[in-house]
Amino acid sequence: KYSDMIVAAIQAEKNRAGSSRQSIQKYIKSHYKVGENADSQIKLSIKRLVTTGVLKQTKGVGASGSFRLA
């Protein structure tokens, strides 16, 4: 599940300011076997996790910027 992968990526990075979408994508692609549409799936999952309150956006708008666990 992409949401689990995103949470794992943010936990692994341990950046106080949060993790960027690009760094999350890079982590997921190197640690998991994902399909061609992974980028758009990650983007959608990040937006969903922010609206449900699992992630907090520290910089930027939408799916860009930095995110950390709430």
Rank of each mutant, 00 (worst) to 15 (best):
S30L: 11
L69I: 09
S23W: 13
G60T: 08
G60R: 08
M5F: 05
K56G: 03
S40E: 14
L49S: 00
N15G: 08
F67D: 03
L49D: 00
K56C: 15
R16G: 11
S64T: 14
V54Y: 04
K56V: 15
E13N: 12
L55P: 01
K1C: 15
T51A: 14
G62K: 06
Q22V: 08
N15K: 09
S66L: 15
S3G: 09
A70W: 06
I46Q: 00
S19Q: 03
S23I: 04
K1E: 09
S19P: 04
A70I: 08
K56S: 08
K1Q: 10
Y32H: 02
V54M: 06
S23M: 07
E13H: 08
S40K: 15
A17H: 13
V7N: 01
L44H: 08
T52N: 10
Q11E: 08
Q25L: 15
Q22S: 10
K1L: 15
A8P: 01
S66T: 12
G53P: 01
T51C: 14
V7D: 00
G35V: 04
R21Q: 13
A70V: 08
T58P: 04
G60I: 07
I46V: 03
A38K: 03
S20F: 03
E36Y: 08
A17N: 13
K26L: 11
L44E: 13
F67V: 06
L49I: 00
T52A: 13
I10F: 00
G35N: 06
L69C: 07
T51N: 11
D39Y: 09
S20N: 06
N37A: 06
G35C: 15
A63G: 14
A70C: 09
Q22P: 05
S20I: 03
V61W: 11
V54T: 04
S64M: 10
I28T: 00
R16C: 15
H31C: 08
E13D: 11
G18K: 02
R48Q: 11
T52C: 15
K26P: 00
V7Y: 05
T58R: 06
F67M: 04
T58L: 12
A12P: 00
K29P: 01
S23A: 11
N37W: 07
L69N: 05
G62V: 05
T52E: 13
I6L: 01
I46P: 02
V50W: 03
M5H: 02
K26A: 12
A9H: 02
I28M: 02
L69H: 04
A70D: 04
S64E: 15
N37E: 12
K29C: 07
S64Q: 12
S3P: 15
I6W: 01
I24C: 03
K1A: 10
N37G: 08
S23P: 15
V34H: 02
G60Y: 06
Y27P: 00
A17F: 14
I46M: 04
N37K: 08
Q41E: 13
K29H: 08
K59L: 09
Q57R: 09
Q25Y: 11
G62T: 07
I24W: 02
S45H: 14
N15C: 13
Y32S: 02
K26R: 12
M5A: 03
T58C: 15
K59V: 08
S19F: 03
G62I: 05
S23G: 05
I28L: 04
E36W: 09
L55A: 01
A17K: 10
K26V: 08
T51F: 09
S45I: 12
Y2H: 02
T51D: 14
I28W: 15
E36H: 11
S40W: 13
A12V: 05
G60M: 06
S3M: 12
V50H: 00
L55V: 05
S3H: 10
I46A: 01
E36M: 10
I10S: 04
R16I: 11
H31N: 08
A70G: 05
G65S: 13
K14A: 14
Y2L: 10
Y32L: 03
K47R: 09
S40D: 12
K26Q: 12
G60P: 06
A8I: 06
A17L: 11
F67A: 04
E36I: 12
S45G: 12
E13R: 07
E36L: 11
K33I: 11
Q57D: 03
L69M: 08
L69F: 05
I10R: 00
K14S: 10
H31G: 01
R48N: 10
K26M: 09
T58E: 08
I46T: 01
R48P: 01
K14F: 06
K26E: 13
A38C: 09
A8Y: 05
K47W: 15
S66G: 12
G35W: 04
Y27I: 02
D39F: 06
Q25I: 15
L44K: 14
N15W: 05
Q22M: 09
Q11H: 13
R68G: 07
G35H: 06
G60A: 08
D4C: 15
S66Y: 14
G65D: 14
G65C: 15
A8N: 05
K29I: 07
K33H: 09
I46S: 01
R21E: 15
S30M: 11
Q57P: 07
A38M: 06
A9Y: 04
R68Y: 15
Q11Y: 08
S20Y: 02
Q25W: 09
K33V: 11
N15Y: 05
A12E: 04
Q25S: 13
Q22T: 09
D39G: 05
D39M: 08
Q22F: 07
R16N: 10
S20H: 03
Q22D: 10
I42V: 05
G35P: 09
K1F: 10
R21H: 12
M5G: 02
H31A: 04
I42A: 00
V54L: 05
K1H: 10
G60Q: 07
Y27C: 03
T58G: 07
S3W: 06
K29T: 07
T51R: 14
V7C: 11
A70Y: 09
V7K: 05
A70K: 05
S64Y: 10
V61M: 09
Q22C: 14
T52F: 07
R68T: 13
K43P: 03
